[in-house]
Design a protein around this nucleic acid. Structure first.
Lengths: 341, 341
DNA sequence: CTGAAAGCGCTAACAC
DNA sequence: GTGTTAGCGCTTTCAG
């Protein structure tokens, strides 16, 4: 049975006959240490299987190389991609991401934030601009860089990186109108707490209104297999409102379900009915037709957010460049353009 | 500008006129404190916006309520579900999951493990049974519960929860044979480091061999959209080996791509060609036909692993019950059964 | 290049 | 009920 107590610097010090302080220097590659002692120490540490105690280190140095990343969900395809962007950038720094999930619940966000801040991370990357007052207060008082991501329709506490979902909704509406579609149905999540979906919808209806149009039918879902929901909602909606000529989905997964349904039914896409989703997920590439969509720049958002944190952690001052609006790119795919050009 | 220094217990103590020790008791709900002082302290803490320093707390108490969760990937659908199971269980305890991702690379796993262990977590949940020698040594020496998940084909360091992928592969092969299929193609990931996929394949070929059969064609991919890869590989394989009557995919996503391709081509499924995937993901429910698959019990694995950690953290001893083999369930869907029953 | 001393902010253990 | 005293294991700082 291995030792119950875990090893300390002192154990390595004793095993190598070098002072704790010098052992510490070697293990952190700090300061000048003679090659001789360095090797002696490393050998001893390795032999004993010493793992440093970051808790003690952090307390003494007042430095923690953790970055809190707070997101609403992991099952959304979207957030893992953001995380990938963050990881890729932080891999080149001493910083490490720590992920917390809120399930789209503000109170849960608040408690996750509290937990994470109590570990004194070097920075926070958090999805969205909407938070409880208590959460905002905590972030303002934390004294560390805070980057709010995904959305730029609002005022950041510190820095922000994202796209304007309102603008994205408008842009999609305009593209649809330009193709001559007029009877438009909308399907999306029920979640009142998905502010970004809400903003897209608002931008969408707003742009339709400007052309004297409005959403002819709409339906919202929650939970379950998004692909199947898309299929089911599409069927229900087309039965209820048969004269629709376009279906706009608030995410690609339900859009894909809708597309599969239409193809199944032999509905001519995009002649009889046009379709579009949102997010530009990889999945679309494997469908029989490529669903029109709008990329949400997830990886890039993650990268940029991580860069801001890294820069600040390295001593940079807050700067106006720390608020970045990316432009979502419209992908026509095969389901939006009615004629050539 | 808010204070640069973050607040300490002492600040709360001074603001409330109560000793640090008692403040600490109140904030942790420990021991008996008069209602009076309790309220005074809570008011002061709230007013100041005090966030406790867990680093100092952990150092002093030698207790860290973090559970390290180490998985190969987040973009796999599968692991987020495991995490959900873990979170659900830990939510009822003082423990908190901290996630690390290895990208299927053993050296990365080793470094992630080292980083996490240096924070002295209360336990480790780690995917798979294959690790570098150094990783195994670290886990053996950590003096905390270690639960290896997903797979049970091997010897655990401490506890394990999962399914036998070898057995899963065999079971699928037997089901396929029973339906009378004989010319079987296999498609999967190239990754030599996905040990579970490898074991499934081994079990699969082994069971075929027992009936005098072998895989008639096979193809491996890496990277890119799995759905599209499934489509492309299926097309390539059917052109190369047109007499195949069954396609076994190592995951549902490529299986779904293959299914969509077959339907597109008007191939009769499951009469002319049968299909099956692996994992039993939700996505399947939305496809035009339900792909045959085998559930990998992801949520349950997460739940059980978390329960083992929670039990041990609460003082329980290691027990043989801490090694659990779950049975994957075969789902015939619409693509495996040729005739009724 | 190496070592000694003094905490980091909190909590365990005990006294009052 | 509440306060006091020692550290937890490391790093910072300053001497040598």
């Amino acid at each position: 049975m291995p030792p119950k107590r875990t090893l300390t610097l002192r154990d390595v010090s004793e095993a190598s006959g070098v002072s704790e302080m010098t052992v510490s220097r070697v293990l952190r590659n700090r300061g000048d240490v003679s090659v001789d002692t360095r090797e002696k120490v490393q050998a001893a540490a390795k032999r004993l299987g010493y793992v440093p105690n970051k808790i003690a280190g952090a307390l003494a140095s007042q430095r923690v190389n953790l970055v809190a990343v707070i997101i609403p969900s992991l099952s959304n395809m979207v957030f893992p991609e953001v995380l990938t962007g963050i990881s890729d950038v932080l891999d080149d720094t001493p910083l490490q991401p720590v992920v917390g999930v809120t399930n789209y619940r503000p109170e849960k966000e608040e408690s996750v934030l509290y937990e994470m801040l109590s570990w004194r991370p070097s920075g926070v990357i958090i999805a969205g601009l909407e938070h409880t007052e208590a959460s905002k207060a905590m972030m303002r008082n934390a004294g560390i860089p805070i980057v709010e991501i995904m959305d730029v329709d609002g005022e950041p506490i510190d820095a922000m990186v994202g796209i304007s979902h309102r603008r994205a909704g408008r842009k999609m509406a305009q593209a649809i109108i330009k193709q001559g579609y007029k009877r438009i149905g909308f399907m999306g999540t029920k979640m009142p707490l998905d502010h970004r979906a809400r903003k897209r919808f608002e931008g969408f209806t707003e742009a339709l209104a400007k052309e004297g149009l409005e959403v002819a039918d709409q339906e919202f879902y929650s939970g379950g297999s998004a692909l199947r929901k898309g299929r089911e909602m599409t069927e229900a909606m087309l039965k209820r409102t048969p004269d629709l000529d376009f279906l706009y989905y608030s995410n690609d997964m339900i859009g894909a379900g809708g597309l599969l349904y239409c193809l199944d039914q032999g509905i001519k896409v995009p002649q009889t009915i046009g379709l579009a989703g949102f997010n530009g997920v990889e999945l679309l590439e494997g469908l029989p037709r490529m669903l029109a969509s709008m990329g949400s720049e997830r990886n890039e958002i993650g990268r940029l957010a991580a860069q801001i944190i890294a820069r600040r952690a390295a001593g940079a001052e807050a700067s106006p460049d720390d608020s970045i609006e990316l432009s979502p790119k419209l992908q026509f795919g095969d389901t939006l353009k009615r004629r050539n050009s």
